[in-house]
């Protein structure tokens, strides 16, 4: 094993991990903080990818810029989904079995509708930073990976500041711990949860744009990410954003090593194996609450 190969694998893993952090941060909020098992999150990400693709194809707009523009729409969509989920399941105390089936149904419907409209062809976007690579010494920094990674870390940092510094952010952290206490402060926990879920879906718009920058996308790609995002979320300690970033980087490096030294066809198994081991050995995660 040569040094440059090793270093390149580590850098590629870190860049990939940055992207995974953006993919997972939504789940860290919805599943980690709100206890809403949104397994349909990857489907929202794929929707984000397709929106970026459509706009890029028609107007030539930058995918990340597109994502920022549609962010409010995703936020509202998240609020609607949460409201339906709350009224149909959470309020009746039936979220365990039927709530899971509900999100599974959403995931599935999104995928089938995308297949029916766009077919199963791989779609990709055009942007000036897809292609060129910075070389520092013998280490490669493909811009296609670097830019999503940087924007993603900015997004996570911004969210962490929002959660720690603003009133609503603190209320979101509080709703994860004690809903009743929040009521005593005359804050409506359902409204807070709706906002938080809206934010979690809004991050999917950005993650979707990153995804289609990094790799071509077809409707069923989202399923590969279910295991990844939950593995990262659980290992990161369910709802801790710094934990999410660390766990995402770990998984990124692990996958990059597997791809470099064993072959890319094993990469999906790494993420899911990682998840199974995490669940079996340390379900509380690295920075468990």
């Amino acid at each position: 094993m040569s040094l440059d190969l090793l270093l390149n694998a580590i850098v590629a893993g870190l860049l990939l991990g940055g992207f995974y952090a953006a993919v997972t941060v939504g789940i860290s909020i919805s599943f980690g903080m709100l206890d809403v098992v949104n397994i349909a999150h990857p489907a929202f990400i794929i929707v984000g990818s397709y929106i970026a693709y459509i706009v890029n194809d028609a107007l030539g707009l930058d995918p990340i810029l597109t994502a920022v523009v549609v962010l409010p729409a995703f936020y509202l969509m998240g609020q609607v989904v949460y409201q339906v989920f709350y009224l149909s399941f959470e309020k009746r105390g039936e979220e365990a079995l039927r709530g899971l089936a509900f999100f599974f149904g959403l995931l599935f419907i999104t995928e089938v509708v995308l297949i029916l409209t766009f077919g199963v062809d791989y779609r990709y976007v055009q942007a000036p930073y897809i292609g060129p690579t910075w070389r520092i010494g013998f280490v490669d920094f493909p811009l296609r990976m670097l830019i999503p990674c940087v924007v993603s870390l900015l997004l996570v940092t911004g969210l962490q500041l929002f959660l720690a510094r603003t009133f609503i952010g603190r209320a979101i952290m509080a709703v994860a711990q004690d809903q009743q206490a929040l009521r005593l402060l005359s804050v409506d926990p359902i409204r807070i949860k709706r906002i938080a879920f809206g934010i979690s879906i809004a991050t999917a718009a950005l993650a979707g744009a990153f995804l289609i920058i990094i790799q071509p996308v077809e409707p069923s790609v989202g399923r590969e990410y279910i295991g990844r995002v939950f593995a990262i979320c659980v290992l990161g300690g369910m709802g801790s954003l710094p934990g999410t970033v660390i766990a995402a980087m770990l998984l990124g490096i692990l996958e990059s090593f597997t791809a470099t030294f064993y072959g890319p066809s094993w990469a999906p198994a790494v993420a899911f194996g990682f998840l199974l081991v995490t669940l079996a050995v340390r379900p509380a995660g690295l920075l468990g609450r």
């Binding site: 098992v37 397994i39 899971l100 399923r223 590969e224 279910i226 295991g227 939950f230 593995a231 659980v234 066809s265 094993w266 999906p268 198994a269 993420a271 899911f272 194996g273 998840l275 199974l276 669940l279 379900p283």
Partner: peptide
């Protein structure tokens, strides 16, 4: 967690 693990198992086995 069981539900998520079953999703994961399907992908591991397929790989």
């Amino acid at each position: 967690f069981f539900a998520i693990a079953t999703l994961a198992m399907a992908v591991v086995l397929q790989t």
